[in-house]
């Protein structure tokens, strides 16, 4: 196995894996274990097929693919409706496959309960006019976790995903998304209320076809010694005209010892595209805080209200009401820990 990615590798500058974990632990890690917490509709759950699709991945996914011996395959047939809730129950190297066939619609939830180390590569295929809504909840932990999704979205398909990451010793989520057919869309959002923990979202969205759309909205609140990272690259390929891309990443820094690094990046090889990106890091606004307190709202309650307001639009990107409520609950608890 090659050396672990470290801060001298540009992509891993803010997430030094070599510093976070012993290479021996990575090399000797077992195959990760998954459980299907629930499923509904015509979802077909099986072991991974012998021949797996392979999309673009980051450095650690190679190790996961080489080391993981098994994993779940979640498949939804043409024009079907379904839901599935996956748990990563034991750490190690993992692989998974999610296929949503043409015209089908799958609601996927993912919860991470892994031990001290997990390194997972997930292949996702969204068929023509298919729709996948994906919510991943990673509760606050002390683990080193790398999860790397490679997503291909066909013509008219939609991949909508939310990542609520409360941080770990090192938590890295990579998303490599190819909008492969005309009109394909992806809408990504995520929140990281971090207290003394690390969370990194690194995305690469490629608009390979025309009239494709991508939006990204990521919010971090960092207290203590927390570190929040967003690196987002959008590539609009030659000929992908009429594409539309928006990237927003914002951070709220609550302590001098915390850090938030936001790096949106655009690579445009087509004409006639609309692309916008913005990134900003700030502190809780003193004037807003005073206004709320002058109306009788105690300091901690006022701070919580402002943090909630800051993070809110990203959480509200979750369409399913019950899932949104459960993430809100976790966010509120985390924000309370940041007061």
């Amino acid at each position: 196995m090659n050396a672990l990615p470290n801060r001298r590798v540009e992509d891993w500058k803010y997430s030094d894996l070599r510093n976070a974990i012993d290479a021996e632990v990575v090399a000797s890690a077992p195959t990760a274990a998954w459980a299907i917490a629930s499923s509904a509709g015509a979802v077909d759950i099986a072991d991974l097929p012998a021949i797996m699709p392979r999309g673009e991945h980051g450095a650690m996914a190679e190790t996961a693919i080489a080391s993981a011996k098994a994993g779940p395959s979640v498949r939804l047939g043409k024009n079907e409706r379904g839901a599935a809730h996956l748990h990563l129950t034991e750490g190690g190297h993992g692989r998974a496959l999610i296929v949503v066939e043409d015209g089908a619609s799958l609601a996927l939830q993912e919860t991470v309960l892994a031990g001290s180390f997990a390194n997972v590569a997930v292949e996702i295929v969204v068929g023509r006019n298919a729709r996948l809504t994906h919510v991943r909840h990673a509760p606050r932990n002390d683990a080193v976790q790398v999860i790397d999704y490679s997503v291909r979205v066909a013509e008219g398909g939609v991949y909508r995903a939310h990542f609520a990451d409360f941080g770990g010793k090192l938590s890295r989520t990579e998303l490599h998304i190819a909008l492969d057919g005309e009109g394909a869309q992806t809408h990504l959002s995520g929140v990281g209320p971090l207290n003394d923990r690390h969370a990194d979202v690194t995305t690469h969205v490629t608009h390979a076809s025309g009239k494709t759309q991508s939006t990204q909205l990521f919010k971090y609140v960092a207290g203590g010694t927390a570190r929040g990272v967003y690196q987002g690259k959008v590539t609009v390929a030659a000929g992908a005209n009429g594409s539309d891309s928006r990237q927003t990443a914002k951070g709220l820094l609550l302590a001098d010892s915390a850090e938030i690094d936001l790096k949106p990046e655009l690579e445009i090889l087509a004409d006639d595209v609309k692309c916008a990106h913005g990134a900003a890091v700030g502190d809780l606004d003193a004037e807003s805080l005073f206004y709320l307190r002058s109306r009788g709202i105690p300091e901690n309650e006022a701070r919580a209200l402002l943090m909630r307001a800051f993070i809110g639009d990203a959480v509200d990107e979750i369409e399913d009401e019950a899932v949104r409520a459960s993430i809100w609950q976790a966010v509120d608890a985390a924000l309370e820990g940041l007061l």
Binding site: Y291, I297, A309, F310
Partner: peptide, 15 residues
């Protein structure tokens, strides 16, 4: 002060 993300009614009730 303008406070995005907090609706006026929620603010009034909280205060």
């Amino acid at each position: 002060v303008e406070i995005p993300g907090v609706t006026t009614l929620t603010f009034l009730k909280t205060a």
